[in-house]
Simulated scan of single mutants.
Amino acid sequence: MATTEKNSVMVELYDLSITEQKDDRFGRVITSKSLSEEDLVNIAVTRRTDLNATTLKAAMEILKEIAIEQIANGASVNFGLGYFSLGVNGVFIGDSARWDSSKHKLSVHVTPTSNLRQAINSCTAVVRGMATTGLAINSITDMGSGEVNSRLTPGGGINLTGSKIKIEGDAAGVGIKLINQDTQEETPIPRQSILVNDPSKITFIVPESLANGDYLLVLTTQFGNSGSLLKEPRSCNSEYILKVTV
């Protein structure tokens, strides 16, 4: 069950450079693995041999479609691991104000279910000290909208901050790529699209052809503090899923 005492995560420490204390650190949970819906279905089948993978997938798709339909029509829906409802962004001027799509936008509010909160609260966290690589992505800012850790705009600029993130080396995989979470298709960022490439900041242009969807940003580099390249490239995933909506 999700709330057993066996639930445990590993935490690594990184320098907290925004404070005056030289020994201040912040913790980051190490992502143990990345699972797709298909992976979850396969796990369910191994635990319950009476379940059929094809039926599970079909049922999941039907339920998702119904949930999306109901949410898009103003319903509050308890589905999966969260409660979903719509909110409104933007300011209205006057009692008779009308909807202006250039100023107003609907947004989705998600609140974790009590089962998920309980599982997290009962989880054991083990701190294993400073991260061996120090490679970390701290923030991803969409320059067009100003949104942080949430959006990518095709053809627009992205400011990425972090630690030891400079793209260096010619080993396979070195660079920045965006992985579509539905199709797992990978879109690499061309080197010529990287405008700033520093240890703590990278600025790049998002490909104009990037399709709508949810994306994971993965950065891989051989950059080392000593000025020499690391023998093996090291990778870091963004903590947040980034959405593209054109």
Score class of each variant (00 low, 15 high):
S114I: 05
G27C: 10
L106H: 06
V29A: 15
L35M: 11
D50Q: 08
F84N: 02
E38M: 04
V45T: 03
S85E: 01
G90K: 08
I66D: 14
G94C: 09
E37D: 08
G82D: 03
S85W: 00
S76A: 02
R47A: 11
I62C: 08
E37N: 03
N115C: 04
S76Y: 00
A75I: 00
E61A: 14
R48D: 12
D15Q: 08
N89K: 11
N42A: 13
K64Y: 09
K33W: 11
F26A: 03
T55Y: 07
L40T: 02
S17Q: 00
N78P: 05
F92I: 04
G80Y: 03
P112Q: 08
S76W: 00
N78S: 11
S17C: 00
V110S: 03
R28K: 14
G90N: 09
N73C: 09
I71G: 05
V88I: 15
W99K: 07
F26H: 11
S76C: 00
A44Y: 10
V29F: 07
E65H: 11
K33A: 15
L56T: 03
K105W: 04
Q21F: 04
P112W: 02
P112V: 03
S17V: 01
A75D: 11
R25F: 06
W99A: 13
T54V: 05
G74I: 06
T49I: 08
A53P: 06
S114P: 02
A44F: 10
G74Q: 07
T111E: 06
S96P: 01
T49E: 13
T31D: 13
E69A: 14
E37L: 09
E38N: 10
S32T: 12
V41E: 02
E65S: 15
N73L: 10
E37C: 00
L40N: 08
V110C: 02
V108N: 01
Q70F: 11
L35V: 05
V41N: 08
G80H: 07
N73D: 13
D100P: 07
E37V: 04
S102F: 07
N52R: 06
N89V: 05
S102C: 02
E69H: 13
I18L: 02
S102T: 10
G82R: 08
S85H: 00
V77T: 02
L35N: 07
V108L: 14
G27M: 09
E65Y: 10
P112S: 10
L40R: 09
Q70H: 13
D24Q: 10
L35G: 04
D100C: 04
L81D: 07
Q70E: 14
G74F: 10
F84I: 02
T111D: 04
Y14S: 08
R28H: 09
S102H: 05
L13V: 01
A58M: 10
V88E: 12
E37R: 07
S76Q: 03
A97T: 12
T111L: 05
K105G: 12
Y14V: 01
I62K: 13
T55G: 07
K105M: 09
D15S: 09
